[in-house]
Each structure stands twice: as C-alpha cells, then as structure tokens.
Simulated scan of single mutants.
Amino acid sequence: MTPTFSVCVYCGSKPGADPDFATTARAVGHWIGARGGQLVYGGGKNGLMGIVAAATLEAGGRVVGVIPKALVEKEWANNDCSELHIVDTMHERKRLMAEHADAFLALPGGIGTFEEFFEVWTWRQLGYHDKPVGLLNQNGYYDLLVTFLQSTVTQGFMGDWQMGLIRIGDQAEDLLRELVQAAGLAPESHLDQI
C-alpha cells in the first residue's frame, strides 16, 4: 500500500534521561503508522530512533531508513526497515532522507539531531524545498534553544519570517497533524479517524 504521507523524524540514538522521551517517540511512530503514513529516519536501531521505527512498523506503517556505511559496520543499522538505504556519506544520507519526506520533525536528541534540523530549516529558507519543519519541545527540552533563536531575531541576525518557517509545539500528535496538513497531504478528517 502506498503511504498517504511521509514524515522525516530526527531524534536521538540514545533514549535520553527522561522516560517520557521514549514514550513520545513510541507515540510518534504509532501515530504515523496507524494513519497509513511512512517514517523516514536515520536507519538506526538504538535509542529513540529504534523506538520510533519499531512503533511505526507495529502500527502498520512503512519505515525508510537511510544510514551511512560506517554506521552499518558498527552494527547500528535497523534491518527491520521496510527499505534500508546504505549510503557512503552523511551528506548523501541527509539528501536522500529529505527527498523521501513530505515534512520534517525533530524530537529530543543530540548534536546529530540539531545539525539535521538546522540544515533542513536552512534549506527551506533558501528555497531548496517548501516542506513544513517542526520542533517538538517536549517537557521543555528545547526551551533554551528557542529562547536563543528568538534572541538572534532581537539581535538582528535573523528575521521573524525565518522563525516563521518552523513550527514549534509541545504535543506530538498536534504537531504531527499540523505538519501533515501544512504539507497538503491529508484532510483533518482522515488524520482524526484513528
């Protein structure tokens, strides 16, 4: 079955200190899968990455993983993916993930999550894509980052329009629904039916 939408999720390869992070990753994967969607992610089996992928599959969704060869050699690849693309470089990984996605969502994570989120936001600013980008500020995880980003507007290094290119929310399902609707892929009635 062809998925009705495809969400690229960036998140930690570790579970994080707060058990709520894993609970939310599971809920995100379930939401995507239960609505006939497709998860696109970094192809790992550890941490929040593995949790969101497993939940998507369990709920009947498709999972497209994209992982560099170096991480496969470290045995971090999730071989349960519906599709697993093994690439040579991180640049190729991020390009392929972006091509397969209709929208992007960053959950809590570390440096890799930050880098991927900022890159796809930058690409949107430059007009390389027009896909919605979301930041899940779960339990205030990104509070300091959001405050800093707003200060860059105050300091004149960024405009309000650039902040307007991202959607920030603290409820996973509401933010997912907003992103998929913004991508123009599913009517609200379809997203709410499950």
Score class of each variant (00 low, 15 high):
residue 99 E to Q: 15
residue 99 E to S: 14
residue 99 E to M: 14
residue 101 A to C: 10
residue 101 A to M: 07
residue 102 D to P: 09
residue 102 D to M: 13
residue 102 D to E: 13
residue 103 A to F: 06
residue 103 A to E: 02
residue 104 F to L: 08
residue 105 L to F: 03
residue 105 L to Q: 02
residue 105 L to A: 00
residue 105 L to D: 01
residue 106 A to R: 01
residue 107 L to M: 14
residue 109 G to D: 00
residue 109 G to Y: 00
residue 111 I to V: 15
residue 113 T to Q: 05
residue 114 F to K: 03
residue 114 F to Q: 07
residue 114 F to Y: 14
residue 115 E to N: 12
residue 117 F to H: 05
residue 118 F to P: 01
residue 118 F to D: 05
residue 119 E to K: 13
residue 119 E to T: 11
residue 121 W to K: 10
residue 122 T to V: 12
residue 122 T to W: 11
residue 123 W to R: 06
residue 123 W to T: 07
residue 123 W to I: 04
residue 124 R to F: 10
residue 125 Q to D: 11
residue 125 Q to V: 12
residue 126 L to R: 15
residue 126 L to M: 14
residue 127 G to H: 12
residue 127 G to R: 13
residue 127 G to V: 10
residue 128 Y to S: 11
residue 128 Y to A: 11
residue 129 H to L: 08
residue 130 D to E: 14
residue 130 D to R: 14
residue 132 P to A: 10
residue 132 P to H: 09
residue 132 P to Q: 08
residue 133 V to L: 11
residue 133 V to T: 11
residue 133 V to F: 07
residue 134 G to Y: 02
residue 134 G to E: 02
residue 134 G to N: 07
residue 135 L to C: 07
residue 137 N to V: 02
residue 138 Q to I: 10
residue 139 N to K: 06
residue 139 N to Y: 00
residue 139 N to P: 02
residue 139 N to V: 00
residue 143 D to M: 03
residue 143 D to F: 01
residue 143 D to N: 09
residue 143 D to S: 05
residue 144 L to A: 15
residue 144 L to Q: 14
residue 145 L to R: 06
residue 145 L to S: 07
residue 146 V to C: 09
residue 146 V to S: 03
residue 147 T to F: 11
residue 148 F to V: 02
residue 148 F to C: 04
residue 149 L to V: 09
residue 150 Q to F: 05
residue 150 Q to E: 14
residue 151 S to A: 15
residue 155 Q to G: 10
residue 155 Q to D: 13
residue 156 G to T: 12
residue 156 G to A: 13
residue 157 F to M: 14
residue 157 F to K: 09
residue 158 M to L: 15
residue 158 M to Q: 12
residue 159 G to H: 12
residue 160 D to L: 08
residue 160 D to N: 15
residue 162 Q to K: 09
residue 163 M to L: 15
residue 163 M to P: 07
residue 164 G to P: 03
residue 164 G to H: 00
residue 165 L to Q: 15
residue 166 I to W: 03
residue 167 R to S: 11
residue 169 G to A: 09
residue 169 G to I: 02
residue 169 G to V: 05
residue 172 A to I: 02
residue 172 A to N: 04
residue 173 E to P: 02
residue 174 D to S: 12
residue 176 L to D: 01
residue 177 R to K: 13
residue 177 R to F: 03
residue 178 E to I: 02
residue 179 L to G: 00
residue 179 L to Y: 00
